[in-house]
Design a protein around this nucleic acid. Structure first.
Lengths: 228, 228, 228, 228
DNA sequence: AATGAATGAGCCTTCATTCAT
DNA sequence: CATGAATGAAGGCTCATTCAT
């Protein structure tokens, strides 16, 4: 554990006034690239996007290191922008959680899709290994979000469904090839991945990469078909 | 007095004052049983203890259901006491976390000790099963505490060490009997238990007991000796 | 998200957190005048500064009238700002004490410096008279701060040293001119000024200006060389 | 200054419910010794009085050392009694201030009365010297009380009047003998004594007895008749 | 009469969110 | 669009006071 004391948390500040819909907020407009139509607008967009990216990245780091409790002001300060700017891009703190989580999941979806094109029946294990190895940082964020009961399935059904679909495909293939125990469902699989994150995180930040891998391996071993 | 009210003063709220030694706080006095000497004294204690228990129990429930973010005022309200009473028993919020965590761990230690007296080489698995099955509530609290980087090893070294010792004993025996994979260390084992909690919790509160058991089983299977 | 509300979290209120470095707090940034570069920036600052001044002034009044015990909320209310605004300018209550005290001392330092440029060997007495006459309000604040053992010498060594230096200069000159008893040290002098404040204050707020002056005069007379 | 930070203060807790008259509270009954009529009652009284004395003494010490801000619980703890006992003797915190102040003043009144029986025209100075020398502890308490605008003249008119009367007598005699400047009134004199306390206190707790005496002397010198 | 547990108002501080510039 | 000052609702904690034992 990094610090003796505190960490992942969020304040549970009940917004009070501005709980409203976050619909036509700029950051909610689909980030299509097609909007790069006429010059001057695009120029500003570039700036704005750079800011958005920067805030997102800093937020990810700080959430991972200090938990969800870091203040938006702190994030703004470290990102070199004003608090107002953070709010322009992420109208509530929860929106920022969501963006961070989504960002990380999307990478996994990409990977799942890529692996889906191979023939390897054990592609599932490749994906799982990568997921589990994806580092303490990610694990920290996810673990914090999980503890905060921030449920991606509710908050961003699309992304979550995407991931589930990708994993399901790989799981089906593995089942077909007998590479995985027959009584394993996708839900259980996802839960176990979350568990792996937690386990690795619990082992401590100072834990060697090897030990993390070993923990992951043990869980993966549990997924193998049971010897009769 | 010049004015009817009060005058020059300041509250002397020393920021960080709560950090001071909490030694002679009632809840820190060793809970010796020798104090059960004469009736009236015991009677008074009983009331206080009842309150303490009640707060602890409510805190456990609320932490499990809503996370560590629940306010002490809320806990007090639900426990039917004033905020000051919570403070009397648990001088800081962290002390309350600690008490909740300790309370839960102590049960496990008891169980570990009990199992240590049997001859069963698979006693380890019995303990692990029980730990993992110990319910969503516990899992929720532990997961929340873990995510908050609340480190029991730092906060209550004694209890943590007790648990580790108990588990180590069982692990050694399992190793000797070849009931567990040879490359498993206690640290990994503890991490995996934490991971199991997270996994079960991730599966969702509405998950059936069976599914939880299945997830636990998968992790336990991973601990078995590898088939050569 | 599972539930509509929030989840596992804790607020991360670190007791004693306010003790952390207040370095890059706005009010700590050196008040350079160079920031008066371009209009819009200065405009914004003007608003903030107006607020700051207002809070400081109200605080001074209330501290003088009701003692250091007045709550920050009360000060905020009377200044027509929210508690957060007070905090923005004065991150802790002590910072506000300090600001009030510093504000008052700085005026004296100015005066001391001005008098230092004259040739009058009795300039010391002029300064002391002015200090003592500087009004019940100031006296009240200082007396309150002194009673609270708020030590300017520790809290703001620079300002305190400035004042001491100025007074020392004048005292030296007075010594040289034989205008003051030879056995008087700066420390004693400062203590006596504090005593004069207390005496005037003790005489009561409703005391006439004349009586205050008389009390001051008596103390000043004690500083004169002893008739042999 | 003893500690860098805080000190004399009181919390300004506005009692809310129990602001009522403190009349027929046991501690308000005149402490005549005649009530020692029948045995069993007298036995209890002795205990109670011992407790009262002890609390008073501890309160005096703590007020002097740490300011009026010390909590009643702390005082109770150090006095070896329960908080309830403190309240039995001093129903409000202010009552405790009053008792402490009164206790100290009464000693001075005794002294003044004793001196009033001598013929020494400079008896006034003897009294003043003693008052001023009466130690940092007393000064601390008085200064704290003064800063808190705790005005003995309002709170305990009798004792205050007693003291004033005694001092007036001595002042009159000194005036008659030409031992004191003719333009000095009792009110000024009392204010100056308060000022002397503050000055001595300001010089710091670590100040030598000699320096304290010197400061007192300077003030006393100011009281002497002006050389024409 | 003493104890000490309980109360609850209030304090200082934090921080998500809003809004004037 | 960005800035950063302002808001204000909590939150954790303290402590004078009350009351059951």
């Amino acid at each position: 554990m990094r610090r003796p004391g505190y960490g992942s948390e969020h304040t549970g500040r009940r917004p009070g006034y501005a709980r409203a819909d976050m619909s036509n907020h700029p950051s909610e407009r689909a980030p299509t690239k097609s909007s790069a139509a006429h010059g001057s607008d695009r120029e500003l967009r570039a700036d704005a996007r750079r800011n958005r990216e920067r805030v997102l990245q800093i937020a990810q780091q700080l959430f991972a290191r200090d938990g969800l409790g870091v203040s938006l002001d702190e994030i703004a300060r470290r990102a070199g922008v004003g608090p107002g700017t953070v709010h322009r891009h992420f109208p509530t703190k929860e929106a920022l959680y969501l963006a961070v989580a989504t960002d990380q999941i999307e990478q996994l979806v990409e990977e799942a899709k890529a692996l889906a094109t191979t023939d390897d029946p054990a592609a599932l294990f490749t994906l799982l290994s990568r997921m589990m190895a994806s580092g303490a940082e990610n694990a920290a964020v996810k673990s914090a979000l999980a503890a905060a009961e921030f449920d991606l399935r509710t908050a961003a059904p699309d992304v979550a469904a995407d991931l589930t679909r990708g994993v399901t495909d790989l799981l089906d293939r593995a089942h077909a090839a007998g590479a995985v125990r027959h009584d394993l469902t996708v839900e259980e699989l996802m839960a176990l991945v979350a568990g792996a994150f937690a386990a690795i995180r619990h082992a401590g930040a100072e834990t060697s990469h090897e030990r993390s891998a070993h923990i992951a391996q043990i869980i993966l071993d549990g997924l193998r078909p049971r010897p009769r």
